[in-house]
Design a protein around this nucleic acid. Sequence first.
DNA 1: CGCCTTTGACCGGCGC
DNA 2: GCGCCGGTCAAAGGCG
Length: 171
Amino acid sequence: MENYSPICPSSSSSHREFSLMNSKSTTDHAKEELLFQGKNNGFLGLMASMETPSGVTNNGFEKEVKSCKKKAEKKIKKPRYAFQTRSQVDILDDGYRWRKYGQKAVKNNKFSRSYYRCTHQGCNVKKQVQRLCKDEEVVVTTYEGMHSHPIDKSTDNFEHILSQMQIYASF
DNA sequence: CGCCTTTGACCGGCGC
DNA sequence: GCGCCGGTCAAAGGCG
């Protein structure tokens, strides 16, 4: 928790990661994911967009993802937001309380992907956390849905969390 | 004692 | 039609 390299050391690194995500998205619906790379305002701007669904998400960011899941709204497609963060820990606590409900091995990746669900009553937000096989320090977190309830933890703690996550926020 | 993780099974979609 | 694959369920065990 103390030896994080403050920034992504080179821009080429982020470029490579992005390419990797694109190549992976050759499988049909994955291309509909939104991949956010923390660059200028990276994560903070992103969180703002998540907390204001009528804001950025309606500017065309809100993609429709095919989700014909049985339990969820059959025809309603949910937006997904992917983040790349640089952290040595898998658990990137964003202030909400998550319960893990699954874990699957990912192809072309020696690490596995974890599936989490928000435990707040009535909140159906899901997220999945995955590491890149080549860059162990890079963690991809994909959020699905939007929280309709306040954060459990304090903002103070959240700042601490941000410092842990080490986004590419120094440009 | 209650919540959470783990883990194998199951299910639906899609490609061949 | 069949098999693969990604995502989810649910039982059982663990931990604070």
